[in-house]
Amino acid sequence: MAGLFIICLSGDRERLQFAAMAASVAAVSGTEVQVFLSMNAFPYFIKGQSKEAPAEGAVGKAMERHQVPPFYQIFEQAVELGDAKIWACSMAMDVMGIKEGELESIVAGPMGLTKFFSDAEGSTILTF
């Protein structure tokens, strides 16, 4: 399967922002995009959890001061305008005790790493 496969691990604003930008721009340009959420990137996609990520450095702090679209909104646009698929790491869900119904609606569902890598075979994988 050709496309862009993005793995989000960091909970920092800058990395989430760039992952969302890459996902949305590629998706609206006709590339099949799949995003895998794990580690500290995962909790932002649980219903009721904060969507505010802490800045790691100067650019992240500048983004807070300016009218930069929030990363979560950009991921929503990737799904709505570009038909990107966002998957939640089943391991992260298990260790956090999260059920599928507790995931935000932009998340397509749970996904195991083995299946994600199988789907990504031969495609570009970016990790943030």
Binding site: M21, S24, V25, V28, Q67, V68, P69, I74, Q77, L81
Partner: peptide
């Protein structure tokens, strides 16, 4: 105006749909 990348592009695409 005032929005940063990729905001303007996303607004354009949402409207064009």
């Amino acid at each position: 105006r005032g929005s940063f990348c990729p905001g303007p592009l996303m607004e354009l695409i949402a409207n064009m749909k």
